[in-house]
């Protein structure tokens, strides 16, 4: 199973490092990162493998949101099924 982590906010040093560290801590494997900075605004979509996640996924969602709040970013982790349902027949 995969999850999508989306991040939006003001650019700063160490955003990817912090999110990656949190993923590693919870056994979430990063498969793909697409990231850009435009006019000082950071945006990133990260696709991750959550097959071996070591906490319940909903807890990981909360953890990401909290990490976002602490760093003035919007971070959302979402199960991939919502995207598959919408875009694949």
């Amino acid at each position: 199973m995969k999850a999508v982590i989306s991040v939006v906010g003001k650019d700063a040093i160490g955003i990817i490092a912090r999110i990656s560290a949190s993923c590693a801590e919870n056994n979430v494997n990063i498969l793909d990162i697409s990231q850009s900075v435009l006019h000082g605004y950071f945006s990133m979509i990260m696709i991750t493998d959550i097959d071996h996640i070591n906490i319940p996924f909903t807890e990981f969602v909360d953890k990401m949101s909290l990490l976002g709040e602490k760093n003035s970013l919007q971070i959302h982790a979402m199960h991939e099924d919502i995207f598959n349902a919408m875009h694949k027949i």
Partner: peptide, 12 residues
């Protein structure tokens, strides 16, 4: 693999 375009559309 999910395309970024699709992901962004859903998020929007």
């Amino acid at each position: 693999m999910l395309s970024h375009e699709n992901i962004l559309e859903t998020l929007q």
